[in-house]
Design a protein around this nucleic acid. Structure first.
Lengths: 1272, 301
DNA sequence: GTTTTGCCTAGCGACAATATCTTTATATTTGCG
DNA sequence: GGCAAATATAAAGATATAAGTTATAGGCAAAGG
């Protein structure tokens, strides 16, 4: 489908290209000169070294002051002020805005020099011009004049804004400005006219000015005016309405077998249909079903809270119209009460806004959050708050409630997002460019890197900081989380005040019946491990109400699957959803990651990564209706089945209190924890059920629609779909519900793969392909039964490892069989090819480990796939047998009890760096499931077994382990290291700039003088700021985020909350950095492999999807994909990955120093060694020590006795004192003795170096090509 | 002002005679048994003192083998007065075991109008969370007549660390006021006897010997679970008025404010145990009070 | 200056302690001539 | 009216909170005598 639709889309957009000449021209300029890029591609090999070097983004160490400059990290307080400034401008509080600017220049001149750019000024100037009631032209000019001395260069937009202002006042000044602009700034006239700050009316008034300037005699001026006129003509000569509806747009729903959408109980629908209903309801009846998908997607994303509000309003009005009385209104109780809350909340919000306006300079908090309450109308703020709070029901593991911190930050964030959405919506002019990119992408051209590059360059030409959305040069500072929290807390507390539910009750004294208006939500606290946690809880009445009503009223959908191709990733923060700004990487609280990502994005290092993500996003999905129907049936029955939890009607009866409940604390405690456990289980079940509910709802909403999942990455580069509820990374249920949109004929090979796939899903995956194929064929009766009577039949599919996916496969197989010609059957089912212990595969490839390579199927190992787990189990069993023969009791107990399953988890998690303790715990769990093992021995046995598993793994994967160790060691060195400059700055090493930093010095002194330990090689932790950073073969810089937490308490209206302070200096967490590096590195490699494979598959016309190390495509393309997977793996590992890594490290951490502790007194050391030896070897010595200890204790005892009772002969303190001294003498002697023997250490800084790489084994990576079970 | 309320303790160590003076009434009633829980090192000493001080029988709880060894030695030279039980005073089971006839079972005395004439509980509580928890638990056991106090109104003398001492004796309105002080206030007299100096005992830190005599009747009349719930929630912010904090008890819980006999503007930290009990009672009577009062987010993987 | 104590314990994805007291830094007012 | 001292206020740092330890014990890094 996508092809034809896409082609149409392209054709359609090209019409717009004519209108939008500027885009067209720029685009052509870049695309039409392919040689520019081809040439660079041709010389790629030659300049490889060069580009390789440039490929690494290297920034100053996060501990250095240079970092702040280079990385341009905005300090928190400035970020806050910027956000306030913007809010003031938006809400028209220009006086305050101006004051903030002045204040900022006064208090933060350095930061302003760095961060106050032309976009900020344009926003400010525009604020003055658009000021109510009349333009503040004077201030505007003042600030315009202030730009140059402050090093900010005015651009076309600047002049457009100012001109716009003066056009309304004085043509004379306007003309003057125009001339100044052209002559002094060299800004062409036509660029002004194109400014997005101008409305058509503004441009119209240019024309008027020209017309009324006929008497101008100055030649320059005349000239310029002429140019202006021409430019205006260019713009206004075209139709003024840019977004003309294309009547030829293909209807979105073109599915031939368009099914009536069945009802989900108790919920109805969300998402698209919701949107359609809304649009229809709001008087746009015709447009919805035949709407252009692109526009529909836009609508879907922008169905803001306003929509929800209007819907509520609409329902209400409708029922009023029907003459319903207030009580019999056709609103559900919940909706009615939500409406009441809204009504109650509105005046509160308005009052609060007024209070903020009236706030004196003393009311700091109000002054801070006040402006943000004015960026959206109170109606929106109210509905946002209501819906956000309802959405968070049961989040963070709180029963019938949520953590306050989460709630208020989310409310704040939602307000911000809604505000952004409104901004974007209001400036529709910004969108055409975007849809052009989209069209280009849909055509598939953007996978051509050259075209992509051209497109990016074009965007850059058009605007320095374009994010592909909204006005290109918009200055839109993000709200720091402190702001979000404060804004959110205000609104939340207002809602807590406003939202009431009437509940019948009675006066306990009089017994009189009364109605209590109890709050729907209330703020409370819980203790968890002795720590207070702020909670916002739902009242029980509200919970009941919610349970009875469909989630569509309370769940405001967000980040749904898309209806059209996601936008391509053009920069780190531009791509995916059409109008919702999203990041290509999920970054949490690590500014450093963002800095590197941004830099890499700016330097065009991410093109390959982006095209990989784009491929993943371009895969079109559909809901598998057959499976959906079964799911729905199960769901509505409330039965527990596969992943679907059962409906739990009422609370389970509590266990009876034990007899001695009132007398025995233990009994009481046990009973209470039992009750708590029951409650937690009920809660878990409930939230599980909610989760499935969301999934089913989403599936239902998209039942007849195409779905695309825009993808982004975690910090290692692993890709994830952005829609959270229903996606192919989800559980078995999700996966079973999804299949490809496109159907491809199976062909002979595809038919075979389909059969194999079914066997795999059933769990029959350790056998040869042929055996698996046979398994499916011999299970045909069961398969057909599963299809014909999924719930009433034998339920064979439920016994599968992955039941829902298996059911999906059954449908596919059955349909193929019944078609009579399976090979011609058009299949939509994704067939999986899974890496066998993918992490180990990469390790084996890196280490050239022959045995290891065989164990994980890098090399062919026979007619069945090698299974590492079985392999390890066998090896372990061999060792156990030997030990048992030698009479080892533990080994004897274990004989015959070590299955594949016992070791599987440990082997799997080994690549994640599982420790002995963790492994033992895992094995313990497995052993406990085995009745043959005596309970009492489980612990000892698991420890023993864990050791064996570890040693076996080490034996099988020698190379892998050496590399793992090397990685850990290197990471440890890096994380402990400190740049030379840091040492020089603190004077620990000579050679630095001789105390050039005046203020720096004093601050250091202040801190050091207080209580903190002085920085030295012995105590380096506070200055260890170096993260492990590397670059993947695709050019993605990866920054490990593990640092010590820098959380601070932030005051909000409801309570203080504890959040990460962006300004906090956060030294690295050395152990986490080193222990997590091996898995992260390997994951960055498997992510690379996946992205490479994605692009390669796409090039060959194959549909591609992946779950990290499981690659999916159509059955008929499995062979093709397999080839690609192998080729890409070989290509990846043919590179000297480890050598590159060490080279990068050496470059990146050049001149870094590592603290080192060395023994300087050799003799002392020897002595100590001797003493240590004797301590354990020499019996008499040991006795002596024991004797000493005994005596010491006795003294202590005596001492205490004396101390407490003064029982000593001598009265009072004197005796005590003597005694004390005696004791101390004894003890000191002992100590002295040991101290004397202790060696002296010296702490030094030595250059950061790395161990030599482990030697690579013999395995030839090209063997992979011949290994059938590499992925299977 | 807060400090001056407390009896200042000299670092001077009181003699045994001085100490005994404080327990005069006990001597009169000729104690028949005592329990010692020598939780910390060096306090085998304490057991020894008891032995030498006219107790008929001393049951020493000592689970740690190393120290146990010590006490056993003591026991041997005590001619049967000191008896060692390898149980931990921290363990709940211990008190069940003590009800066996061969220990204290015979001495059970349900009459709370008088202090138990035959049993005296003493020991030392460790610094840190364990000791604190244990002390708090002793107090709740007193008010609920649980564990040891199923055997009667048993008085205690406990060595407790400085910080604990300030907490348990904190009066309404003082800085150290906390949940434990409320419960203590409601169910027992807690009186300081004497103190050690900062370095007199290991581990270092000041210790105080407090004499705890349970009241004949606890002031907490409301249902314990309710009282605990109320107390826990109100004490989240002691410096806020009751009228504010009462809202955290449940949605609309402020309705009970009007049913109280005192001004709801009172700060939590200044409320007496009786007042808090009244709140708990009214809360319990409120028809819309939350059903579940156990709300521990016991989230373990 | 180096033994003892304490922490965590397989990675990523899904985020988040808080009230109150004490100390220190900064702003504002006062006082003085 | 100007400036220094004094005072007020805000920011930052510390500490307590709850309450059975949750079955395990070794390695490594923070902290402190």
């Amino acid at each position: 489908m996508s092809l034809s639709l896409a082609r149409q889309a392209v054709a359609k957009r090209s019409l717009r290209f004519h209108r939008q000449s500027k885009y067209c021209q720029v685009l052509l300029k870049h695309v039409a000169i392919p040689c520019r890029y081809q040439s660079s591609a041709a010389t790629a090999t030659e300049s490889d070294v060069d580009t390789n070097r440039k490929k690494h983004i290297i920034m100053p160490n996060a501990g250095l002051s240079a970092y702040k400059l280079t990385a341009k990290v905005l300090p928190g307080s400035v970020a806050e002020q910027f956000a306030v400034l913007k809010a003031c401008i938006i809400s028209g509080s220009m006086v305050r805005a101006e004051r903030i600017m002045k204040e900022l220049y006064k208090t933060r001149p350095e930061e302003m020099k760095l961060f106050a750019d032309v976009n900020l000024y344009n926003t400010l100037l525009n604020g003055f011009i658009e000021a109510d009631p009349k333009p503040m032209t004077k201030e505007c000019l003042t600030w315009l004049d202030a730009m140059k001395p402050r090093g900010v260069t005015a651009d076309a937009d600047t002049y457009a804004i100012v001109l716009k202002g003066f056009l309304r006042q004085s043509y004379h000044t306007a003309r003057g400005l125009l001339v100044e602009m052209v002559l002094e700034e060299g800004i062409p006239v036509d660029s002004v006219v194109k400014s997005e700050y101008l409305t058509m009316a503004d441009i119209e008034s240019f024309r008027k000015m020209v017309a009324e300037s006929t008497q101008i005699t100055n030649n320059n001026a005349r000239d310029i005016l002429a140019q202006l006129e021409a430019a205006v003509d260019v713009v206004l000569g075209k139709p003024a309405e840019p977004l003309m509806k294309d009547s030829i747009a293909e209807p979105l729903i073109r599915d031939a077998n368009f099914d009536p959408v069945p009802e989900v109980k108790p919920t109805k629908s969300i998402g698209v249909q919701f949107l359609q209903e809304q649009l229809a309801a709001l008087g746009d009846p015709n447009a919805t079903s035949r709407m252009d998908p692109y526009d529909l997607q836009l609508g879907l994303e922008q169905q803001g809270y306003e929509m929800a509000l209007q819907r509520l309003l609409y329902d209400k009005e409708q029922s009023m119209e029907r003459g319903d009385t207030l009580n019999a209104m056709n609103l559900t109780p919940l909706k009615r009460i939500m409406w009441e809350w809204h009504q109650k909340m509105l005046p509160l919000v308005k009052e609060e806004v007024e209070r903020c306006d009236a706030a004196t300079s003393r009311e700091n908090e109000r002054r801070l959050y006040g402006p943000f309450l004015k960026v959206l109308p109170p109606e929106t703020l109210s509905i946002v708050t209501i819906l956000e709070l309802l959405r968070l029901h049961n989040s963070s593991g709180i029963g019938d409630g949520m953590k306050t911190a989460r709630a208020i930050i989310d409310v704040g964030k939602s307000v911000e997002m809604e505000y952004n959405a409104v901004q974007i919506k209001n400036k529709a002019r910004g969108f055409d460019k975007n849809s052009d990119t989209h069209a280009l992408f849909s055509s598939g051209k953007l996978f051509n890197l050259a075209v992509r590059k051209a497109r990016i360059d074009m965007e850059k030409d058009l605007s320095q900081h374009s994010n592909g959305m909204g006005p290109a040069n918009d200055w839109n500072p993000v709200w720091p989380s402190t702001i979000r929290a404060k804004v959110g807390s205000v609104l939340t507390s207002l809602l807590l005040e406003a939202a009431k539910i009437p509940v019948p009750s009675k006066d306990p004294e009089t017994g009189m019946k009364i109605i209590e208006n109890i709050p729907a939500f209330f703020h409370t606290y819980q203790y968890v491990h002795g720590k207070r946690v702020g909670i916002i809880k739902f009242s029980e009445q509200l919970t009941h109400m919610l349970a009875r009503e469909p989630i569509r009223d309370t769940l405001h959908p967000r980040l749904l699957p898309m209806l059209v191709h996601p936008n391509p990733w053009l920069s780190y923060n531009s791509g995916g959803y059409l109008s919702t700004k999203s990041m290509c990487m999920r970054v949490k609280d690590s500014a450093e990651q963002l800095v590197y990502l941004n830099k890499a994005s700016e330097n065009d290092h991410l093109a390959k990564v982006f095209s990989g993500l784009d491929v993943l996003g371009s895969t079109c999905w559909r809901v598998n209706k057959s499976v959906f129907n079964v799911v729905l049936e199960v769901w509505n029955k409330g039965e527990a089945l596969a992943d679907i939890p059962p409906v739990v009607q009422e609370h389970a009866p509590l266990p009876p209190k034990p007899e001695n409940y009132d007398t025995d604390p233990k009994a009481k405690f046990n009973w209470v924890s039992e009750v708590k456990q029951i409650q937690t289980n009920e809660r878990n079940n409930h939230s599980l059920r909610c989760d499935v509910n969301y999934k089913v709802e989403t599936a239902r909403a998209f039942l007849n629609l195409p779905m695309y999942f825009p993808h982004n990455m975690d910090f290692r580069g692993r890709a994830y779909p952005m829609p959270p509820t229903l996606n192919h990374l989800g559980n078995d249920l999700c996966r079973g519900l999804l299949h490809f949109e496109e159907a491809k004929p199976l062909g002979a090979r595809g038919w075979r793969w389909l059969k194999i796939h079914l066997a795999n899903l059933y769990g029959y995956d350790k056998h040869s392909f042929t055996e698996r194929e046979e398994f499916t064929m011999s299970s045909m009766d069961n398969i057909l039964d599963s299809v014909d009577n999924p719930l009433s039949g034998k339920r064979w599919w439920l016994k599968a490892d992955s039941p829902w996916q298996c059911l999906a496969a059954c449908y596919e197989v059955a349909a193929a069989v019944r078609s009579g010609a399976p090979e011609e059957f058009k299949s939509q089912l994704p067939i999986h090819q899974d890496g066998t212990c993918n992490g180990l595969q990469h390790y084996a490839a890196l280490g050239g480990d022959l045995a290891g390579a065989r164990a994980v199927n890098l090399a062919n190992s026979g007619d069945r796939p090698a299974d590492v787990y079985t392999g390890v189990a066998e090896l372990v069993n061999k060792q156990i047998d030997e030990a048992a023969a030698e009479g080892n009791e533990l080994a004897q107990l274990l004989q015959g009890n070590v299955s594949r399953k016992v070791v599987k988890q440990t082997v799997m998690t080994n690549v994640y760096g599982v420790t002995f303790v963790g492994a033992r715990a895992q094995i313990e769990n497995r052993l406990r499931e085995n009745e043959n093992i005596p309970r009492a021995k489980v612990y000892a046995l698991s420890g023993y077994l864990a050791k064996k598993v570890f040693s076996s793994l080490g034996e099988m994967f020698t190379g892998a382990h050496q590399i793992q160790d090397w990685l850990t060691d290197s990471a440890r060195r890096i994380a402990r290291s400190v740049p030379l400059e840091t040492l020089q700055e603190s004077g620990l090493v000579p050679g630095g700039p001789p105390a050039a930093k005046g203020p720096e010095e004093t601050t250091v002194k202040k801190r050091g003088g207080g209580k903190k330990k002085e920085f030295s090689a012995r105590n380096p932790t506070a200055n260890q700021m170096t993260s492990v950073i590397w670059t993947t073969p695709l050019g993605l810089p990866i920054v490990q985020p593990y640092r010590r937490s820098g959380k601070k308490q932030i005051a909000t209206l409801l309570q203080t909350i504890f959040i990460e302070d962006p300004d906090a200096s956060r030294p690295v967490n050395t152990s986490k950095q080193s222990s997590a590096f091996p898995p992260n590195f390997i994951h960055s490699l498997d992510a690379t492999h996946m992205l490479m494979s994605a692009v390669a598959c796409h090039k060959k016309g194959m549909t591609f999807a992946s779950v990290h190390d499981s690659y999916w495509t159509h059955a008929c393309d499995v062979d093709g994909m397999n080839e690609v997977i192998r080729d890409q793996f070989i290509e990846l590992h043919s590179q000297p990955i480890m050598e590159n890594l060490i080279a990068e490290f050496k470059e990146r951490y050049k001149d870094y120093r590592v603290p080192r502790t060395e023994v300087i007194d050799k003799n002392a050391n020897d002595e100590q060694d001797a003493a240590g030896a004797s301590l354990f070897a020499d019996e008499s010595e040991l006795d002596k020590v024991l004797e000493l200890e005994k005596q010491q204790k006795e003294n202590e005892k005596k001492d205490a006795l004396n101390a407490i009772f003064g029982l000593a002969d001598m009265p009072e303190a004197d005796g005590d004192g003597d005694q004390d001294e005696d004791d101390n003498d004894d003890m000191v002697m002992v100590e002295k003795k040991s101290k004397k023997n202790l060696s002296k250490y010296k702490h030094t800084w030595e250059p950061l170096s790395f161990l030599p790489l482990p030697k690579k084994g013999e395995f030839d990576i090209n063997e992979v090509k011949k290994s059938p079970y590499f992925f299977h | 002002m807060s400090k001056s309320k407390f009896k200042p303790f000299t670092s001077k160590i009181p003699t045994l005679a001085e100490w005994s003076k404080n327990f005069r009434h006990r001597q009169a009633s000729a104690p028949r048994a005592t329990l010692a829980s020598p939780s910390i090192a060096g306090l085998g000493t304490w057991t020894m003192t008891l032995k030498d001080n006219g107790f008929k029988r001393v049951i020493a709880l000592e689970p740690v083998p190393a120290y146990n060894h010590w006490i056993t030695g003591l026991s041997e030279q005590s001619k049967g007065i000191v008896e060692v039980l390898k149980k931990d005073g921290y363990d709940w089971e211990t008190y069940i075991g003590l009800k066996e006839p061969q220990y204290l079972g015979e001495l059970e005395n349900k009459d709370w109008t008088h202090v138990h004439p035959g049993i005296f509980f003493t020991g030392t509580l460790p610094k840190g969370s364990r000791g604190e928890q244990l002390l708090a638990q002793f107090m709740t056991c007193i008010t609920n007549k649980m564990a040891l106090f199923t055997m009667g109104r048993i008085q205690m003398a406990l060595w407790i660390p400085d910080s604990l001492f300030y907490k348990i004796t904190a009066a309404p309105g003082t800085n150290a006021r906390c949940k434990m002080s409320v419960i203590a206030e409601a169910c027992a007299d807690v009186m300081p006897i004497c103190s050690t100096g900062p370095k007199d005992v290991y581990p270092h830190g000041e210790y105080h010997l407090v004499h705890i005599i349970p009241f004949a009747e606890s002031q907490i009349k409301s249902q314990w679970d309710v009282f605990e719930y109320v107390l826990k929630h109100l004490f989240v912010m002691q410096k806020k008025p009751l009228s504010h904090m009462v809202r955290t008890l449940g949605p609309g819980a402020d309705i009970i404010l009007g049913r109280l006999s005192f001004d709801p503007q009172i700060l939590i930290g200044t409320m007496t145990a009786m007042q808090l009990d009244e709140v708990a009672t009214k809360f319990d009577e409120w028809p819309l009070r939350p059903r579940v009062l156990f709300e521990d987010a016991s989230v373990f993987t």
